[in-house]
């Protein structure tokens, strides 16, 4: 099976373990996602009793939820993060929670590197009680264009491009995925974040610190050559603004969906209208 997967599960767990010790100081991107999720959560009027923090990293989101009086179960694909948050180690697309366990599931910063995202979303929906809420945030399409261009420029030194950037999900595709996974009232939206970097190495350091470096199964296991690194650094520097910093873009994708319940607003049954639309249009 693993030959047909996109992401290397073992590498993913390892990268997360390596990021764990110093994560709290490096988590600006996830902090942004947590803020976005809590914003969306605060606009919901109902209250929640038991939440799952899926992809819990150091447990920062769980702390916020507990402060709001919600009990939290934490889960992470990496052992070190699972241990820090007092949670369970598991893969998002092989979720080990019984159907109808939670009334809230939050996930910040992990669903972009899951092998079977439709499967993960379906399992998330099943783990929710009826009328339970799912809120997710992750890096989506349009992110890291400067990194992509710089790495390509580096690869061109030797004449062929290698897979270096993870596939990214479009907002529209994300909405479709939510609907396909059986969520009611699905919404997908995105938030643009521009980060200015003094150089490519600083960006690479940030990605490493977030456990977000390349885990593609098809990635090259040969190190970059000196000329390759030089060309990549130069391409990134050439894209800089007058003050010498290069603007890199991150598009954070937010997903919102409810597990279906009879109490929710339902579309009218097809053919149940009592007036003709054609007639209404003719009159005006």
């Amino acid at each position: 099976m693993s030959e047909t997967e996109i992401f290397d599960r073992a590498a993913r767990r390892l990268r997360r373990d390596r990021a764990a010790p110093d994560f709290a100081e490096q988590d600006f991107l996830r902090a942004q996602m947590i803020e976005g999720l809590l914003d969306r959560l605060s606009s919901v009027t109902r209250s929640f009793s038991l939440a799952l923090d899926l992809g819990c990293f150091d447990g920062a989101l769980g702390v916020e939820l507990r402060a709001r009086g919600v009990k939290v179960v934490s889960a992470d694909a990496g052992f070190a993060f699972a241990k820090m948050a007092g949670g369970v180690q598991c893969d998002e697309d092989r979720l080990p929670f019984a159907d109808g366990s939670f009334d809230l599931i939050l996930s910040a910063g992990v669903l972009d590197s899951v092998n079977d995202l439709p499967g993960a979303l379906t399992l998330i929906r099943r783990a929710l009680k009826p009328d339970g809420l799912f809120l997710g945030a992750f890096v989506g399409a349009g992110s890291l264009p400067q990194l992509r261009a710089a790495m390509l420029a580096g690869d061109m030194v030797h004449g062929s491009a290698a897979p270096r950037i993870h596939p990214q999900i479009e907002v529209r595709a994300a909405g479709d995925l939510l609907a396909r996974a059986g969520f009611a009232l699905p919404v997908a939206d995105s938030e643009r974040l521009d980060i200015r970097y003094p150089g490519l190495l600083r960006l690479a350091a940030d990605l490493r610190a977030a456990g977000a470096t390349n885990i593609l199964c098809g990635r090259s296991h040969v190190g970059l050559t000196r000329p390759q690194i030089g060309a990549a650094l130069q391409a990134f520097a050439e894209a800089a603004e007058p003050d010498g910093k290069t603007r890199e873009r991150i598009e954070i994708l937010y997903l919102t969906g409810w597990s279906p319940a009879p109490s929710q607003p339902q579309p009218a049954r097809r053919g149940s209208a009592v007036r003709s639309l054609a007639e209404a249009l003719r009159k005006s």
Binding site: F79, A82, Q89, D91
Partner: peptide
């Protein structure tokens, strides 16, 4: 269960 963490990985 390692160091109190249920490791629910097939591997």
């Amino acid at each position: 269960i390692r160091e109190g963490v249920p490791v629910l990985l097939v591997e």
